[in-house]
Design a binder for these strands. Sequence first.
DNA 1: TTGATAGGCAAGCTTCCACTTGCCTATGGT
DNA 2: ACCATAGGCAAGTGGAAGCTTGCCTATCAA
Lengths: 97, 97
Amino acid sequence: MAEDVFKALADPTRRHILDELVERGGQTLFEICARLVTKHGLGLSRQAISQHLAVLESAGLVRTRRQGRYKFHDLNTEPLERIATRWLRPDAPESTP
Amino acid sequence: MAEDVFKALADPTRRHILDELVERGGQTLFEICARLVTKHGLGLSRQAISQHLAVLESAGLVRTRRQGRYKFHDLNTEPLERIATRWLRPDAPESTP
DNA sequence: TTGATAGGCAAGCTTCCACTTGCCTATGGT
DNA sequence: ACCATAGGCAAGTGGAAGCTTGCCTATCAA
């Protein structure tokens, strides 16, 4: 849903996660936690990041794949490619609520 | 500044306001209120819309001009043109001014 | 001047969101 | 088997966001 994409992008922590995944795909939850601390100075709990990842995944911005006890996260830019052009083309046949 | 753009776009009512301003620029607050009711079925108070417009304006998405007792609102798409390309690859088929 | 229109300011309420805490399951190494 | 690692579930909390209500100012027409 495009609705969820906007809400997912509203939080600065989630945008930092996307920045991290764009720089290096296929990271686990613990890797993302560690990199958010060292590179962005964000000292959040593991659960907080996990919940943020759940929001990003349900918005379609993050794809996950399980492998053993690891869960790898990858960025999916496909939902991003439409949302910004919604108000940029006045003559586009837009009908999304 | 870009932080405020994401937060401004997070609310569905504000996105409907942008839809309205893209369709017809230079509307007053009362016009926007009326059109949100008749076209989108949103029954909100005048103050609610006014506060939404303030958020959009402080995010740079709406420009206002006073004329007598009227205050006209216009869309400014300039902040939108960068936010979506933030996580897109450099080879994305997007116009980069 | 009077009254109607267009808009603003501020307090209060309610719901939602981000975050934490504690406990749980599952996988893998030794 | 044991234990550390990787992750999930659920309840609880603080604060921000959205909306309303009431009152106020400013502009224009009669």
